[in-house]
Computed example of a mutant assay.
Amino acid sequence: MSSSDIFIGELIGTAVLILLGGGVVAAVVLKRSKAQGAGWVAITFGWGFAVMTAVYMVGSLSGAHLNPAVTLGIAIANDDWSNIWVYFAGQIVGAMIGAALVWIAYYGQFHAHLTDREILAAQPEVEGLVDQKAAPKAGPVLGIFSTGPEIRVVWQNLATEIIGTTVLVLAVLTQGLNDSGKGLSILGGLIVAFVVVSIGLSLGGPTGYAINPARDLGPRIVHALLPLPNKGGSDWTYAWIPVIGPLAGGALAAGIYQLAFT
């Protein structure tokens, strides 16, 4: 695989991942969406199918890592650090593009949701509503773009992301890799998609299961930049957890793989 193939593959694949994954959250959350209220099970399966679609789409180009934690885990397991920054760049840029596409696809619903008086009344910290001096942490649609904890306990939130990502990357390393060991196989893409569903159902409750630094950071940047009315804050005080936690989980999974499986 050339560096250009890796960058293009990761960009396209991660954009599709976020478009479909963020799209299912938007569908469930936003006012005037036909799927509003469909619930957590719809979100978890939506994200799983998003992974499967993206992996099969770009696996032949880049190996379909689509996640810096996966890239880090594979690099450690194989002791091959070539192109790691190309993977990271494609993933971050792709995640930003995917998040912007979600906004375009749901443009009217975002406007309806963020100008709805019932929604605004439940968000006293949204800028301009009650307290102009308040420093809003998470706006009413931030969850469509990135993750956040239900209970803000730093060590628990970090541990949850580490545990979930360890499961994901260990599954990739033990069940998902192709013959070269550098990307997902055809069967591996399906297995990993169902692992993502399982993680969402079992471990997604506390933090929303980022388990992917690019998936969280790229869309969070887009949320901060988009001209959304009454959007509130992007919760940058929390943003390091879904970056550091998954990277630590990816490294831990690689260590477990080397000790137990090689």
Rank of each mutant, 00 (worst) to 15 (best):
residue 119 I to V: 14
residue 260 A to K: 04
residue 81 W to H: 10
residue 204 G to C: 06
residue 20 L to M: 15
residue 38 A to C: 12
residue 232 G to P: 08
residue 246 P to Y: 00
residue 113 H to V: 08
residue 89 A to P: 14
residue 155 W to H: 14
residue 194 F to K: 03
residue 35 A to V: 05
residue 76 I to H: 12
residue 65 H to W: 08
residue 54 A to D: 06
residue 145 F to M: 10
residue 4 S to A: 11
residue 234 S to I: 00
residue 187 L to Y: 06
residue 118 E to H: 00
residue 74 I to E: 13
residue 55 V to G: 15
residue 147 T to A: 01
residue 118 E to A: 08
residue 180 S to C: 06
residue 196 V to S: 09
residue 124 P to L: 02
residue 89 A to I: 12
residue 189 G to W: 00
residue 155 W to I: 09
residue 45 F to P: 02
residue 165 T to A: 14
residue 212 N to P: 13
residue 143 G to T: 06
residue 119 I to P: 10
residue 220 R to K: 04
residue 27 A to Q: 13
residue 5 D to W: 08
residue 232 G to H: 05
residue 184 L to D: 15
residue 99 A to P: 02
residue 197 V to F: 09
residue 102 V to S: 03
residue 74 I to V: 15
residue 187 L to F: 09
residue 46 G to M: 01
residue 253 A to F: 04
residue 190 L to R: 01
residue 165 T to C: 13
residue 241 I to C: 13
residue 42 A to I: 00
residue 124 P to I: 01
residue 130 V to N: 02
residue 97 I to D: 10
residue 194 F to D: 11
residue 56 Y to M: 07
residue 91 Q to G: 04
residue 219 P to A: 05
residue 129 L to F: 10
residue 245 G to Y: 15
residue 262 T to E: 13
residue 29 V to W: 12
residue 117 R to P: 12
residue 73 G to E: 03
residue 202 S to G: 14
residue 122 A to S: 13
residue 95 A to M: 02
residue 139 G to K: 05
residue 34 K to T: 12
residue 75 A to E: 14
residue 17 L to E: 15
residue 126 V to N: 03
residue 94 G to V: 08
residue 144 I to Q: 04
residue 130 V to Q: 03
residue 50 A to D: 13
residue 24 V to D: 04
residue 153 V to H: 06
residue 110 F to Y: 11
residue 227 P to V: 12
residue 6 I to E: 10
residue 65 H to I: 03
residue 113 H to I: 08
residue 34 K to Q: 08
residue 22 G to V: 02
residue 5 D to N: 14
residue 71 T to P: 14
residue 189 G to F: 01
residue 190 L to Y: 11
residue 94 G to I: 07
residue 201 L to T: 13
residue 52 M to G: 11
residue 179 D to K: 13
residue 147 T to K: 02
residue 234 S to W: 00
residue 197 V to I: 14
residue 193 A to V: 02
residue 224 A to I: 04
residue 78 N to G: 12
residue 19 L to Y: 06
residue 178 N to S: 09
residue 245 G to W: 14
residue 193 A to Y: 01
residue 34 K to Y: 04
residue 181 G to A: 09
residue 228 L to I: 03
residue 160 T to M: 12
residue 145 F to R: 07
residue 249 G to Y: 00
residue 56 Y to Q: 07
residue 61 L to S: 05
residue 133 K to W: 12
residue 55 V to P: 10
residue 129 L to D: 10
residue 50 A to Q: 12
residue 257 Y to E: 14
residue 108 G to A: 10
residue 17 L to D: 15
residue 54 A to K: 00
residue 155 W to V: 11
residue 40 W to N: 12
residue 74 I to T: 13
residue 89 A to T: 15
residue 134 A to M: 03
residue 114 L to N: 13
residue 122 A to V: 02
residue 21 G to D: 05
residue 44 T to M: 06
residue 173 L to R: 04
residue 111 H to Y: 14
residue 89 A to D: 10
residue 252 L to V: 03
residue 100 A to I: 05
residue 81 W to S: 11
residue 92 I to C: 06
residue 103 W to R: 07
residue 22 G to K: 01
residue 64 A to E: 00
residue 196 V to T: 05
residue 248 A to G: 09
residue 6 I to Y: 11
residue 204 G to W: 09
residue 134 A to G: 01
residue 154 V to W: 15
residue 219 P to Q: 03
residue 144 I to F: 07
residue 168 L to P: 13
residue 238 Y to S: 07
residue 66 L to T: 01
residue 240 W to I: 00
residue 149 P to G: 11
residue 171 A to S: 14
residue 53 T to I: 13
residue 78 N to V: 06
residue 159 A to Q: 10
residue 158 L to T: 08
